[in-house]
């Protein structure tokens, strides 16, 4: 299938990108790796007037440790995250997730920032960001992850705003991401991520609602000394997962509990 026509410009810097977006108007869109966007263009489910290509914004391709934080540039590709020694050392769960995004070809192109801006309910990184209280840095402000993801495919970004960086807390401790899917390269039907921090366990869930979920009830049960199975039993509390051709809402609730328990057991 063939995308509808659009204008196209390349940005070499954040400033250029924002200026181009502003000039192109409200129907313009950013294209980074484009691995989710191009299929939408081809199916004509998305018909932007203008694409601002940020692949040339090299200043956003980095992994920087800073104190107890790990700053990751928005244009860092999945394949870079998989291979990055800094990520392996300071936030190995991010590398574990990155290795499970799409397939090698997708990982060679797709970017961290693209995942955040696209805000698919089945995206993996948003789960990590929400459970670890990461901060999304844009060209103009800093937004907490829990405020950034507002609904399905909907973020706090203004039309001319660009994701520049995601700041995660470092977390080298025990961790695990279980991505349940029918085929190895599919999106998660449900994903469960766990990360042991100095302050206790953090637990996040993928694709159990319109946005990523932090399983606070599981965390507090663990804090209170519950066993993994006991704690994981709370993983479905308050969830309103979607029902679709892959899975019913009930099954997703069930998976949330099973995968959370398994992730805890495997991480520990």
């Amino acid at each position: 299938m063939i995308p509808a026509a659009f204008q196209y410009s390349k940005a070499g810097s954040v400033r250029e990108a924002v200026a181009q977006l502003r000039e192109a108007g409200p129907e313009a869109k950013v294209i980074a790796g484009g691995q989710s966007l191009i299929p939408l263009l081809r199916l004509r489910l998305s018909q932007p007037s203008h694409l601002v290509d940020v692949n040339g914004v090299r200043e956003l391709d980095y992994v920087h440790p800073e104190g107890d934080l790990l700053r990751v540039g928005a244009m860092t590709r999945h394949s870079t995250l998989v291979r990055s020694e800094l990520v392996q050392r300071h936030l190995p769960l991010l590398a574990e997730m990155a290795a499970q995004v799409g397939d090698p070809q997708i990982r060679a192109r797709g970017t961290l920032g693209g995942v955040f801006a696209h805000a698919d309910a089945a995206g993996d990184y948003p789960t990590l960001a929400v459970m670890l209280d990461a901060t999304i840095v844009t060209d103009r402000r800093r937004v907490a992850a829990r405020d950034f993801f507002q609904h399905l495919f909907t973020t706090a970004l203004a039309e001319d705003e660009l994701v520049c960086e995601v700041v995660f807390p470092m977390a080298p401790g025990p961790h695990r991401y279980i991505k349940f899917r029918r085929r190895l390269y599919d999106w998660a039907i449900v994903g469960a991520a766990v990360q042991k921090m100095d302050s206790g366990w953090r637990v996040g869930l993928t694709h159990v609602g319109p946005t990523a979920v932090r399983a606070a009830a599981v965390e507090s049960r663990l804090q209170a000394g519950a066993t993994f199975p006991e704690a994981a039993g709370a993983a479905a509390d308050g969830l309103e997962p979607p029902s679709d051709v892959r899975a019913s809402a009930d099954y997703r609730r069930h998976l949330a509990q099973v995968l959370t328990r398994r992730a805890l057991e495997q991480a520990a």
Binding site: Y8, K10, I31, G34, Q35, I38, P39, R42, L51, D53, N55, S79, P104, Q105, I106, A108, R109
Partner: peptide, 18 residues
């Protein structure tokens, strides 16, 4: 799939200009 600067990419999932 083709190689783009040595990495495998899906050429139907990229704009030529990219």
């Amino acid at each position: 799939t083709v190689l783009l600067d040595g990495a495998a990419v899906k050429s139907c999932n990229m704009l030529a200009l990219q």
